[in-house]
Design a protein around this nucleic acid. Structure first.
Lengths: 221, 221
DNA sequence: GATGTTTTTCACCAAATCATCATTATATTA
DNA sequence: TAATATAATGATGATTTGGTGAAAAACATC
């Protein structure tokens, strides 16, 4: 699930967009102005920013600048005909823009296209103190590299792509071995969970990253 | 096999779509207008609705409304350029729309995406002060996690999915143990009801969430 | 083909969970 | 009210599940 930060001070737009984008499967957070946006950027991780260029408390350029520093993709929302802002925004490194009023559907397709573009430039995901670069296939903690075998890495990616959801053992077997436990020993998975935990958890006995939900499966929060 | 209900009064579209979608592995039923659609909705179960917005006997909104009531996903078919209907449709809770003329292939991919979304939209359900997230497999009250065993959790889900109706002991045994009481001791169920109540009820002696309907079974309101 | 690595399997353990029993409580009805 | 049926309770072995260490099998690299 992609996480979007919507920076917009018009209540009604925030409400309707949040609803629509949530339905489309995005996780949407919003900031009602520049100040709140910068704060949220410092404290959370997002996959993409939607920034209204004309905010009451200053234009969206400062937000864009910080976002670009963190290498986040940015899409500008702009009043139609505001050519100047569009040019300035794109110059700052914004990835796309869309003029109000826009059809939500079009926004979604632009979001998806930008995300696709970013997907294979190798975003670094920070989670529970470990950082994962899906492009390089590199995993590290506190700058120190963690070497994972191919399977361990794949397992980690499955968890990463399903953050927050319980994954049943069968589901994991399916994702990684293309089988429902008929061919590989069911315990194989258990062993891999253990290996992965040994490498990425600070205390494997008390796993913080990959939790066991007895009877249901495993979950990464 | 997913069951689709196609609400469309143009014979030729019905015929070609039915053929194409069947080939794609869907089970397709069709209704030639609003009236027939509402009837079918009352009598059968579907996984997704495809609704033409401009039906001869009234627009598709009534169908959409009933579908949403039953929590079915809906995709609108609309004449191109009919912006008004699109907005109205999405406002009503439609999950997506596609403008005619469309390529069947695109329709299929939209159908699949909506179904996927619904499949793992583990919405958080709030009920009697406890919240249940079927995606995370987590149950909580006032933000505090409630740990349920696999069986307790399954039992709770059965009640959740049958809110308001009395579930006989046999029905519950069937749902959870795949048996009608022939193999597991009948009292086992009683014990699990008790355990579940101890964990989710504020006062297990006087259950508010799972009521006993003596002689008939149990019910969650 | 020797060597080192990764993947899979095996055997065993501990703890959580499950199914059942005997007993007690409560509602229904004769 | 007593008898009967139904449901709740507490306690207890049995079973399942997931975790562990080690070893065998498969794979790759030289």
């Amino acid at each position: 699930m992609y996480r979007l930060l919507l920076v917009e001070d018009d209540e009604s737009i925030v409400k309707s967009l949040t609803e629509y984008l949530s339905q489309e499967g995005f996780f949407v957070e919003s900031a009602n102005g520049q100040k709140e946006a910068l704060l949220k950027l410092d404290n959370s991780v997002y996959d993409l920013l939607l920034v209204d260029i004309s905010l009451a408390d200053g234009n969206g350029f400062a937000v864009c600048a910080l976002a670009k520093e963190k290498n986040y993709p940015v899409i500008f929302l702009t009043a139609s005909g505001d050519e100047y802002s569009v040019v300035a925004g794109l110059d700052m490194g914004a990835d796309d823009y869309i003029s109000k009023p826009f059809r939500p559907r079009e926004l979604v397709s632009r979001i998806k296209s930008v995300l696709r573009r970013y997907a294979n430039t190798g975003q670094t995901v920070q989670i529970h103190g470990i950082s994962i670069n899906t492009d390089k296939g590199a995993v590290s903690r506190d700058g120190k590299d963690i070497f994972l075998s191919a399977l361990e890495y794949r397992l980690l990616l499955v968890f990463l792509n399903n953050r927050g959801s319980v994954l049943s053992r069968n589901r994991l077997l399916e994702e990684i071995w293309d089988t429902c436990g008929d061919f590989v020993n069911d315990n194989t998975l258990t062993v891999y969970i253990k290996r992965l935990r040994e490498k990425i958890e600070t205390n494997p006995q008390e796993p913080k990253i990959i939790k066991t939900i007895r009877g249901l499966g495993y979950r990464m929060d």
